[in-house]
């Protein structure tokens, strides 16, 4: 028994020995949001940005996927402890943790995407998603033959509602008579990962007359585009370029350049030009854009392209203000 006990305590001692810390590196680090690295949307865009950094510079980086919000602060602290810089956190749900970590490590450099954290060592990057959505609404309304267009959102949260409001405003700028059907896929994060439900919602909108449908639903949106293509209607992609998913059946894709935000962060650090502060990116700054490529060239008429470019210029110049519903909670411009 004694020997057994001693062996057990030996094993315990071995297990409890501190894990050797890796040496401090001036590598950049990326902490994804709860959805995971390959969510086909937001986090994946961040991953692409980091990969672009690797290809461009040959430098390495570290990334980490949190499983729940509580994991965020330990991860940020771990990276800060080991001298990673800058530490980029993706998603509004990490704001609290970034604030706390920035306070605990005043000499470290943090960055957060999609939320503003006010601290002397934090760069906040947010997007005016509504501007991209406005262009989508405008193009959808012009491409529609039935005068009815659709919107399928993921989880019913302000981020998605803001997109919807911009879309409606863009459609209304073409004609007040355009009808916009809209559905949200659900009330849990699963609403961003349910292609079958996306397809179902798209089919029901098509049955009610919609012939152009935008998806703002992450993985769920894949089903939306599929259903639209199957029915011979048009879909609109978001977040990344989804034109190639169904060539000739995707009107355009509205990109949110999270990848560029991550890449800039990493490159700025490398060149010693990293600065804290708030960066708000819209069409003007290239933070939002829409894609024309070989897959949708024939779908965008000269009229449509001209109108969209004009709207882009007007938004950039401040002649058109796209309403931000997150500011006052209402959709009406």
């Amino acid at each position: 028994m004694n020997i057994l006990l001693r062996a057990a305590s030996l094993v315990a001692a071995m297990l409890l020995m501190p894990v050797a810390m890796s040496p401090a590196l001036a590598e950049p680090a990326l902490v994804y949001s709860v959805g995971g690295k390959f969510d086909g949307s937001f986090n994946e865009a961040a991953y692409r940005g980091a990969e672009a950094f690797r290809e461009k510079t040959g430098e390495s980086y570290r990334d980490f996927e949190i499983a729940r919000d509580a994991d965020s602060l330990p991860a940020l602290r771990n990276f800060a402890n080991r001298g990673y810089a800058p530490i980029v956190a993706i998603g509004f749900n990490q704001a609290e943790a970034v604030g706390a970590a920035a306070k605990a490590f005043p000499e470290a450099r943090f960055s957060i995407v999609d939320m503003v954290v006010t601290a002397p060592n934090v760069r906040s990057v947010t997007f005016r998603e509504q501007e991209g959505a406005y262009i989508a609404g405008l193009l959808a309304a012009m491409a529609s033959k039935t005068g009815t267009i659709g919107f399928v959102g993921g989880m019913d949260i302000p981020l998605i509602r803001r997109f919807l409001c911009g879309y409606r405003q863009g459609a209304a700028s073409v004609s007040k008579d355009v009808r916009v059907l809209f559905n949200m896929a659900g009330d849990t994060p699963a609403a961003f990962a349910d292609p079958a439900r996306g397809a179902e919602l798209a089919r029901s909108q098509i049955a009610r007359g919609a012939d152009v449908i935008i998806q703002a639903a992450g993985g769920t949106g894949i089903g939306v585009l599929q259903a639209a293509a199957d029915a011979g209607k048009l879909g609109i992609g978001t977040d990344s370029n989804q034109n190639g998913l169904h060539p000739g059946k995707v009107l355009t894709s509205i990109r949110k350049r999270v990848d560029a935000a991550v890449l800039d962060n990493f490159l700025d650090e490398l060149s010693g030009e990293w600065t804290p502060g708030v960066h708000v990116l819209g069409l003007k700054e290239g933070g939002m854009d829409w894609v024309i490529d070989a897959n949708n060239r024939d779908l965008i008429t000269a009229d449509m392209e001209a109108a969209a470019r004009r709207a882009e210029a007007d938004i950039a110049a401040g002649r058109i203000i796209v309403h931000d519903m997150a500011r006052d909670g209402s959709c009406a411009p």
């Binding site: 939320m115 019913d156 302000p158 009330d187």
Partner: peptide, 22 residues
């Protein structure tokens, strides 16, 4: 599921701070 829907409704429409994405 009903709880999830109810809470999203309350948090997005009734109890939320304005101007926050979360």
């Amino acid at each position: 599921f009903i709880a999830a829907s109810l809470m999203v409704y309350l948090l997005v429409n009734v109890m939320a701070k304005t101007g926050s994405m979360q």
